[in-house]
């Protein structure tokens, strides 16, 4: 047992506190899921209750709408492709920054940190203008993919740097002596060793791309919309269909929630690496 000298024993009170906090975190999410499984009369009955006859009616309505199916597909395409591109480009760049001394290295490394902090809202106007009038990328999924890859790259480079720095250089040396070139060393020796880092980076990237709203709102039309954009339009209609909205909300929340349960350790490692190291 580590830290027995400093770590005090748990008391019933500490368990009570942590359980209360867990309920506080989960409660609002459970309210959303419960509402998505309710009929309209149940939602508006005037007393919120967790006891009701669950129905999949809202999901049937949401997924039966071909528009929604299309927007979900768009979200999936955009998030998957941009995550793939970000990871490949990002791990290569992180490797260059960690392992090589080259002209301009400090600029690249400092610039990465600065660009990581740019609020997406700041990009809406220029990206809208450039994509529409210079690149011909407006209302296309590739336009959204390009900007998502760009905003996620600094973050991925940042996270992966600390993982790459932990790979023992002796391993790379050994591979070089065996005749591997720099690219073989990277792809066959370094990449397999930073798999946990790649997993964390992939989850964070996918989450940001899947959840992103404001750039997608500005860059898409009614064919290329992603799901977060759709739901924002849906909620400002006059008669809010709460059951269906919560069904869409749950659908949007499912991939991040699943990732969290599958890989909470990697997520916390990534979060800590992002905040503490770098």
């Amino acid at each position: 047992m580590s830290g027995t000298a400093t770590t005090r024993r748990a008391t019933p009170f500490s368990y009570a506190v942590i359980v209360a906090l867990a309920l506080l975190s989960l409660g609002p999410i459970l309210v959303m899921i419960a509402t998505s499984l309710k009929t309209k009369p149940d939602i508006f009955s005037g007393s919120f209750s967790l006891i009701f006859m669950p129905t999949l009616e809202n999901y049937r309505a949401v997924l039966g709408d071909s528009q929604n199916a299309r927007y979900l597909t768009n979200s999936l395409i955009v998030a998957t492709i941009s995550t793939g591109l970000t990871l490949v480009f990002g791990c290569m760049a992180a490797y260059a920054i960690v392992r090589f001394r080259f002209f301009g290295r400090d600029v690249v490394s400092g610039g990465t940190l600065l660009m990581r902090m740019v609020p997406p809202a700041v990009l809406t106007v220029p990206v809208f203008m450039i994509w529409t009038y210079e690149f011909g990328l407006s209302n296309s999924l590739s336009g959204v993919i390009l900007v998502y890859t760009a905003i996620n790259l600094p973050f991925v480079i940042w996270i992966l740097q600390s993982f790459i720095a932990q790979v023992p250089p002796a391993l790379e040396e050994a591979a070089r002596i065996d005749g591997a070139n720099d690219f073989q060393v990277f792809f066959l020796v370094v990449l397999p060793m930073i798999r946990p880092g790649l997993a964390a980076a992939a989850i964070f990237t996918f989450r940001i791309a899947w959840n992103e709203f404001i750039l997608a709102l500005v860059l898409t039309n009614r064919f290329t919309r992603t799901m977060p954009v759709k739901v924002s339009l849906f909620i400002n209609e006059h008669n809010i269909e709460w059951g269906q909205i919560m069904a869409i909300g749950t659908l949007i929340a499912i991939p991040p929630l699943v990732f969290t349960f599958l890989a909470s350790r990697q997520i916390i490692t990534g979060m800590t690496a992002g905040a503490v190291k770098g």
Binding site: I29, N211, P228, I252, L257
Partner: peptide, 11 residues
């Protein structure tokens, strides 16, 4: 505890 941070701000 990390669930609320992972879901979309829109949600």
């Amino acid at each position: 505890f990390i669930l609320p941070m992972m879901i979309a701000p829109i949600v």
